[in-house]
Amino acid sequence: MTKLLQWLLGVSILGVAWGIVTFDILDLRLPHVYKEVAWPMPVYLLVVFGCYSLATVGYRVATFNDCEEAAKELQAQIQEAKDDLKRKGLKM
């Protein structure tokens, strides 16, 4: 079974379960609250998942160390190198 099939299977099982509760397909006469909770569930889950992803990605992107010093040092060295190489006869 490929990962794709696993996912499809998982999603359809959840979908069916959700449909059964929301639309009462099997005529189970579930209490009304079940339905109230169940029908917007996919949206809730999506929102929660989205927030979680955004927060994680945002946090990690924001806390990447910025090395200003290293960049400055490199710039200075590049200049030094260029001068020295020119003196040694390098044609760029």
């Binding site: 990605v57 992107v61 990447f64 160390n65 910025d66 090395c67 200003e68 290293a70 960049a71």
Partner: peptide
Amino acid sequence: TRYKGDGGVYGWDLRRKLIRYLRED
């Protein structure tokens, strides 16, 4: 390693950090 101690990156704008993040994480 760019992820420990004094390690880090310079010159990545937000978009690139994001791409890198998606790629590596």
